[in-house]
Design a protein around this nucleic acid. Structure first.
Lengths: 135, 135
DNA sequence: ATAAGGCTTCCTGTTACGGGAAGGTCAAGG
DNA sequence: CCTTGACCTTCCCGTAACAGGAAGCCTTAT
């Protein structure tokens, strides 16, 4: 399989696949013409990577998960630790974003959004309810 | 005021302040010795920038918001448009992360996390069944 | 022979800074 | 006067995970 077909089947750009090879996540063989020659094994890895990335795992997490995946003797606890840590980060990110969202909603709701210059959003960003013109 | 004091008062690293100058968000004066000489006006801008960044606005959003803030004749609708678009992105990000979180929770819950090799997390990532969602 | 499309490598750009080197400046102390 | 140490300056590299695009080779079809 050439990279184009693999990209289609794995649902990711060829650029990404070349990048994964560059950083050592996959090591496809080469044809005599220099083209990458992918085997099923590479496909499986790419599918795995695509799923892990879609769940927000970093590339380094992916590298570790792939290694565990390939290691028949891994302990499932090793995998679970990585997943739990990532889950915690995702949850933290969600709560950060929720705080932003709530503040933004309040600001947006308080702004008339007409052609007058008075804007509670800018006032809020400036702090202390202080618009630059009044400060 | 020198950059150190400004950094303290604005609650951001000096590096960040130099960066903001470099990309034209602020233009502090200079002392004869070459040191940046910040005035209250610069402080206010940095406070504004700190708040806007804390709400997740991009630097380019900040640039536009600052310009509107300085424009006595802006329409509040111009500000509101930026804020609403950003709010929409934040909400989209939250829902993406929630989807990841839910899937991750399912995987983590299904994994024994002991010293046996059987791991539903790896199985899920490999796509051998499990509660993965489409996309 | 030529054109189209796929493949290759290499280089740059992205976001918003952080780390650190090399060196100038300033206030205090001996 | 000299030193020490805390500031400050610019400059350059590194980050995460690729995307865009140039220059050029390979393959297939006409």
């Amino acid at each position: 399989m050439n990279i184009g077909e693999v990209a289609d089947r794995a649902g990711m750009p060829a650029k990404t696949i070349r990048y994964y090879e560059e950083i050592g996540l996959i090591t496809p063989a080469r044809d005599t013409n220099g083209y990458r020659a992918f085997r099923e094994r590479d496909m499986h890895k790419l599918i795995f990577l695509g799923r892990a990335r879609a769940l927000g795992f970093t590339i380094e997490d992916c590298r570790n998960l792939l290694a565990l995946w390939e290691d028949q003797d891994r302990a499932s606890s090793d995998v679970k630790v990585i997943a739990k840590e990532h889950l915690a980060k995702v949850e933290a990110k969600i709560s950060d974003l929720k705080a932003m969202r709530d503040t933004l909603r309040g600001l947006v709701r308080s702004c008339a959004g007409d052609n007058r210059p008075d804007c509670p959003i800018l006032a809020g960003l400036a702090g202390q309810g202080g618009d630059r013109r009044s400060g």
